[in-house]
Nucleic acid binder design. Structure first.
Length: 647
RNA sequence: GCCAGCAUAGCUCAGUUGGCCAGAGCAGCUGAUUUGUAAUCAGCCGGUCGGGGGUUCGAAUCCCUCUGCUGGCUCCA
């Protein structure tokens, strides 16, 4: 007999060789029907795989990420089976589960595969799923595995097996399909009730562009048809919120082939929005003791040789600009920090001045590969809401706190309520990869971890993810559709202070090396605005809306009064316009609704007589009649509610 | 950068197997209308069909090439 311990610490006795599924059945039939896989002593296992020793087990269902993983990984096998039946002789690469579904890389040989084939494969998959094929695990020796795939002519699997250790190789067979796989899998394919193959694309074998390109088919499956429908609806909604589409519709930004790819042009409304964001952050930063600095868009090659960026990126970036007479070389600045280091170096510093915080909305240019460019999220010219904090190692913790406060204020003002944090530390087994003293690293890493704990941040710690120059903390938000976006970042840097020979005079009258902290709460204005557009679907919070209201006069008889209202509101810093077209009110309302303008002020005879406005709220409808002052007060209250912060 | 797909008016899109001056709706302009909570009517303007080259009696349509966009891959100081 062996002991099985469940997550609630209850202990049950079973015969050796019991499976997680049998344990589930013993608890309740209903539970057993939902078990996709299990965790045995922290390791993911097939629900049907025998357990031979005392173990802690956790049953995994569709509600667990690992349960979904097992389901999608199994779906990849199911798809491979369908493909093999439909296109005999194809060869398979790898087919893992991913965050939203799964994919399989396939070498289709001479078959021509396009989007149209996906339906056919889906249909076959559903057919096979109904057969409730089990996934049977088999241990196999390396030699036998090589023989099996050798006979099949599957060179990709052979390459994979070659890198594996004999004794650790397993195959899984489901229906007609046998795959090299470490598992785990769901009990049978019957759990897969709804299937959607979402896209098809090329992918290099093992991500290496010198190797053959395989066809990657992405898909997702669900245990219920309804969940697939919801997922497809979410995709539709995401399409509607695409910032490239809304950017065009709401006239926020554009691109021009003539200006150059990846170089965004901000239109008046987009610029208004961006300026509001910048003004807000500037105000917050001023309160937090930041000093504005300004640096030019190019820098001498020597600057980047000192910073080290030239050695690392000089060859694969924009070519230098050369002066005609002297032949001096300048680079478009890819970062602001080298300039800021020289600002620091412009005079000697005392420990009493630290921390020094230099802030700049600095526009930088990076040569991104053309295939990488995407709307505003990946561009070649963008503006970082950058700042560099020069401080002592002891001050790192407080400075992190200060930056986190700023990030909190900003995320709150923009209703990003779901924030995830990643702490990236150095790889403890590979310390020589990093610059800076052991002591300093330990101090900084400890400070970051402590701050995260004290602030109760929803943080995960990744070892080996730090930059070579220091540990960092990255902020991710989940948008209204649950999609994750990486935004702000805080990074400790021991490298640049060294390279630029930054110093301060300590209380001991000796020279010391400051630590530098890079931080950008938004990340870049371009990327942030893109994420914001998609988060709110173009319905910007009132304080950011390029036009907060639009006046809709019933007829041109009320033009004078409309202008008076406009002036009164403008004086209170409320932004708006008048729609003085000779259109019917219904039409003006429709257009204003489509432009997602927060408030529509309808003005006719009644309003003019009583010095009021009739207010309609975007997406909600008629709010009734307000005096101009009352309306202004309402607007200002709404703005204050989000943008107020404690300094 | 690589693979695949796409590119017709400011926007969204039609344009049969190559064949008469390349079309529609919206936007814009002009006029009429003076309008009360999601589209008033009429007229007009607007395109060397992404650029270049080729095949053909004839190309938006077929071929080559360049540019850009989209989806992936690789990359991201």
């Amino acid at each position: 007999m062996i002991n099985i311990i469940l997550p609630d610490k209850t202990r049950r006795e079973y015969a050796e060789g019991v499976t997680a599924l049998e344990v589930a059945k013993d608890i309740s039939e209903g539970l057993a029907r939902n078990v996709l896989a299990a965790k045995v002593n922290g390791q993911v296992w097939d629900a049907t795989r025998p357990i031979h020793a005392d173990s802690d087990i956790q049953l995994l269902t569709w509600n667990d990420d690992d349960g979904k993983g097992a389901m999608w990984h199994s779906s990849a096998h199911l798809m491979a089976e369908a493909i093999e039946l439909l296109y005999p002789g194809v060869k398979f690469g790898i087919g893992p589960d991913i965050e939203n579904g799964f994919y399989y890389d396939v070498d289709f040989g001479d078959y021509e595969i396009s989007e149209k084939d996906l339906q056919k494969i889906e249909k076959k998959m559903l057919e096979l799923a109904r057969e409730k094929q089990t996934f049977d695990r088999k241990d196999i020796s390396k030699a036998d595995a090589l023989k099996y795939f050798g006979d099949k002519g599957d060179e990709y699997k052979i390459e994979l097996i070659t890198d594996l250790t004999d004794g650790e190789i397993t195959l899984y067979q489901s229906g007609h399909f046998t795959d090299l796989c470490r598992g785990p899998h769901i009990p049978n394919t019957g759990f897969i009730k709804a299937i959607k193959l979402t896209s098809i694309a090329g992918a290099y074998w093992r991500g290496d562009e010198s190797r053959k390109q395989l066809t990657r088919i992405y898909g997702i499956t669900f245990p219920k048809k309804k969940e697939l429908d919801e997922y497809l609806e979410m995709l539709e909604e995401a399409k509607k919120r695409d910032h490239r589409l809304l950017g065009k519709e709401l006239e926020l930004f554009t691109f021009s082939q003539k200006v150059g790819q990846g170089l965004p042009l901000w239109l008046p409304k987009g610029a208004e929005l961006r300026e509001k964001l910048e003004q807000f952050l500037k105000k917050v930063q001023k309160e937090a003791g930041y000093k504005p600095v300004i640096s030019p868009h190019i820098g001498n090659v020597e600057l980047y040789k000192t910073s080290g960026h030239y050695q690392k990126y000089g060859e694969e970036s924009f070519r230098p600009i050369t002066t005609p007479a002297e032949g001096e070389e300048f680079f478009l600045k890819p970062m602001n920090c080298p300039h800021h280091c020289e600002i620091y170096n412009s005079k000697p510093h005392s420990y009493k001045e630290l921390p020094l915080r230099f802030a700049e909305f600095g526009t930088v240019y990076r040569y991104e590969q053309s295939g990488e460019l995407h709307g505003l999220t990946r561009v070649r010219g963008f503006t970082q809401d950058d700042a560099h904090i020069f401080c002592t190692p002891e001050q790192i913790k407080d400075e992190f706190k200060g930056v986190i406060d700023i990030i909190d204020i900003i995320f709150k003002a923009l209703s990003f309520n779901d924030v995830l944090v990643q702490i990236s530390l150095r790889d403890p087994d590979n310390k020589e990869k990093y610059i800076g003293s052991d002591e300093n690293w330990e101090k900084a890493e400890r400070a970051i971890i402590e701050v995260a704990e004290e602030r109760g941040l929803n943080a995960v710690t990744e070892y080996g993810e730090a930059a070579f120059y220091g540990p960092k903390m990255d902020f991710m938000v989940k948008d209204a559709l649950g999609r994750k976006w990486q935004l702000g970042t805080i990074q400790v840097d021991y490298n640049l202070p060294e390279r630029f020979d930054l110093t301060y005079i300590g209380s001991d009258n000796e020279k010391h090396r400051p630590v530098m902290i890079h931080r950008a709460p938004f990340g870049s204005m371009e990327r942030f605005v893109a994420v914001l557009i998609e988060h709110c679907g173009g319905n910007f919070p009132l304080w950011l809306a390029p036009e907060q209201f639009i006046i809709l006069p019933i007829s041109d008889k009320y033009q004078t009064y409309s202008e008076k209202v406009l002036n009164l509101l403008n004086k209170q810093n409320i932004r708006g316009v008048i729609d003085d077209r000779s259109e019917k009110t219904g039409r003006k309302i429709r257009d204003a609704e489509m432009q997602k303008i927060p408030y529509m002020l309808i003005i006719g005879e009644k309003e003019e007589n009583e010095n009021s406005v009739s207010v309609r709220k975007h997406g909600e409808g008629d709010l009734g009649t307000f005096s101009i002052d009352k309306f202004a007060e309402m607007i200002n209250n709404e703005v204050d509610a989000l943008t107020a912060f404690d300094s």
